[in-house]
Amino acid sequence: MTTTSTHLEPVTPEAVQAALNKLASRAMGLTGADIERIVRQARLKARREKRSIRYEDIEEGIRMDRPMVPYDLRWRFAIHESGHAVVHHALRLGPIHGLNIDTPTGGGYSQLGFTASGSDTLGYREDMLAMLMAGRAAEQIVVGKVSAGSGGSEDSDLARATKLALAMERSLGFGAVQPLLYHDDKDPTAVLDGNPDLAARIHAQLERALARAVEVLNENRDKLDALVKALFDAQALDGVAVKQLLKHSNRAGGS
């Protein structure tokens, strides 16, 4: 009588960590309560089926029966988030923890870290502006036109960039007009609507940031294209995967 046995390869700590990193990337944008609920439901499912909890159980819980993102939107999200990541990396603003184009909110999400070194300088704030405008710049380069994905809400790229540019002009001491005066602008929209000259200066600053983002992305076009394809295919990439794709990028578009 011949017997056969199945040999299972041991799971390494590195493989476990890679799986956890991937799940963390898929879960970007969820709250702690969301994660707790997903894990609890996955445990219940595994218990009912009398088996151990699996990676797929958590991944299915994260997706929550959402329909797949349409093909064209998925490409747009991948382009937009990759633009942020490439400029963030090229300007050495800090680590990239992950990218996700399949979030519960129906959009893309970039989890970016920022170094404290030099963060109080004009050059650093200008780098930040370029990074914030980089999603729009990537769409402009790859698609030839931009979507409304950069704006539309108070936490959008355009809103954050406008607030940062206004702070540079009015409260951080980097302004072109009376830089020593400090202004506490609690309502940026009202301030800009009531001061056309100031609004023109802020808009010009944002145009320069957009142009710089375009320049950096053109200089790193191969990295942008590679990251867009990888993100489109995987829908979520952890920081390790992103770093491997971008590790040969050099600083571009200096301050």
Rank of each mutant, 00 (worst) to 15 (best):
A159G: 15
W75A: 03
R160I: 07
K223D: 12
G32A: 12
A90P: 02
R43M: 10
D127K: 09
F114A: 05
R251W: 04
A209W: 11
A176S: 12
A15E: 13
D193R: 07
A204S: 04
Y55N: 07
G175F: 14
L192E: 15
S153N: 07
H97Q: 06
D197F: 12
L122M: 14
K45W: 02
T3R: 12
Y109K: 06
R212G: 03
I62N: 13
G61A: 07
Y182M: 04
G152N: 08
M68D: 10
E60S: 15
T6D: 01
P179R: 11
L122N: 08
G118P: 01
A18C: 00
R37G: 00
I141F: 11
L166W: 13
G151K: 01
V240I: 09
E60Q: 13
Q205F: 10
L23V: 09
A134K: 00
A159D: 15
I35M: 06
A176D: 13
I38N: 00
G107H: 05
S156Y: 15
G253K: 11
L8S: 03
S171Q: 12
I202N: 09
F77T: 04
A137N: 14
L20S: 05
S52Y: 13
E59P: 00
H7C: 04
Y182R: 04
L112Y: 05
P13A: 03
S110Y: 08
R54F: 15
N195S: 08
R212K: 07
G113M: 03
N21I: 00
Y124S: 12
Q41F: 00
M28G: 01
R54E: 15
L181H: 11
I202P: 06
G152D: 08
L91P: 00
P104W: 08
G239I: 02
